[in-house]
Nucleic acid binder design. Sequence first.
DNA 1: CGGTTCCTTGACACAGGTCAATGATTGTGG
DNA 2: CCACAATCATTGACCTGTGTCAAGGAACCG
Lengths: 246, 246
Amino acid sequence: MSEKARRDCDWCGLRRICFPARLPTNAGMGPGALGIRGVQLPRGRALYRAGDRLDGFHMIRSGCVKEIERIAGNEAIVDFRLPGELLTVQGPAGTRSRITCVAVEPSNLCAVPWRSFLAICGRFPAVNGEMVRALAANAAGTRELLATVRDKAALERVAAFLASLCARMQVRGLPAQELRLGMGRDDIAAYLGLRSETVSRCFSELERRAVVRVRAKRVRILSAERLRRLARREGEARAPAVGHAG
Amino acid sequence: MSEKARRDCDWCGLRRICFPARLPTNAGMGPGALGIRGVQLPRGRALYRAGDRLDGFHMIRSGCVKEIERIAGNEAIVDFRLPGELLTVQGPAGTRSRITCVAVEPSNLCAVPWRSFLAICGRFPAVNGEMVRALAANAAGTRELLATVRDKAALERVAAFLASLCARMQVRGLPAQELRLGMGRDDIAAYLGLRSETVSRCFSELERRAVVRVRAKRVRILSAERLRRLARREGEARAPAVGHAG
DNA sequence: CGGTTCCTTGACACAGGTCAATGATTGTGG
DNA sequence: CCACAATCATTGACCTGTGTCAAGGAACCG
């Protein structure tokens, strides 16, 4: 079982926490022995809600979840999480969640209790560093989103969104040319600080430019390179407008 | 010395890391014994730059620093840090910084080596939780900024900025009615995703509404309550415009 | 006290928000 | 398996907030 788990977890961003060292398979380590629980979520179901007490942290294995937080009086989409990613860590054991976490498509997650985590930390000091690294990586992701919505025009934001999804699938070795967007246009718009109409217009514009092909929730990346350049506002000459002005 | 340090550190957000428990003063704990170094930065000087190797994390004791990160090809202001706050933690020992950290006014910081931190963790397991809490708090701050720039109009962003500065001074028990902005209009604008002209107009508008009084870098809060309401877009009836349109 | 830098204010243009109508997709019950 | 309804996506016309450009004015520094 440990061998199989090891294989299943190979592509996971947190594998170094669950498998801190090259262990003999009979060392009793691995998800099961650590008290890590698997969780299945149907579409639309919440993993937890704002106000719930959390005694561990979560990681997603398949599907897609969105994290929502009430900030200054309105619901903000914090992030979408893809397979292999760590959900926002909000504090040590007993912390009340400020975030509601909902599956946008049927999803499969791991719940890691702090209790187990601390036990592993005691045995393998490097795990502490792995957690700091993982938290720092998530924070860097939020800063990147911040920079995107703060400094980029609509078309660039949408390009950056698609480029990000694509890149995140790739690093885990998952299919990245043909994306299935679990979320609707409204969610994408809220995430990027736009309106759903604008997101639509941007998708259309990207299609007109032959960068992607969009059919409802199915997106085919025609040129990841041009997508990335667009997202970085390099070349592509800042076209007069995104849609209706043409 | 430990007693004095204890007093100096009372208002610091990280005191529970440096002083993990109610220790006898002669226990040899406290900033000095932990290998924590004090750092003085004149205005404009960098604490570290993108690419530097970091072997610890930092905390600010007085003054104000800005963190800048090159994201998708341009410089983004990640955050301003006020006394008692933890600078962005980017990873475990040896991590290369992606961020450049510059004093916007003469500042005084503490540098905590991971080496010391891990030693404390070994002795006081609760310190691990304190670090997770501190990291989560910083991430929550970034999410709040994200929500602000993504969902709010210019006037609300500026109000939120001032309200945030004010609140952060207050929680540390520092003077919060009469703020001295260390940074210029351009930095504020970059931080909020606006232009310096717009920031200026918003300051003028807030003054017209008798919410604050602004004289260059000196800001007096006339009504913290109305400032907060404005930032949350409650009441204040979404006035027709921010400045020149009136 | 003169120069430089930063801040403020005004006029105007345009990206994207808003409102509204149509078209596509998905789910459901016959 | 099809028809219908409900939801979601697309497109258009128009409007507004904020960016842009430009010209003073205030504050700071040597």
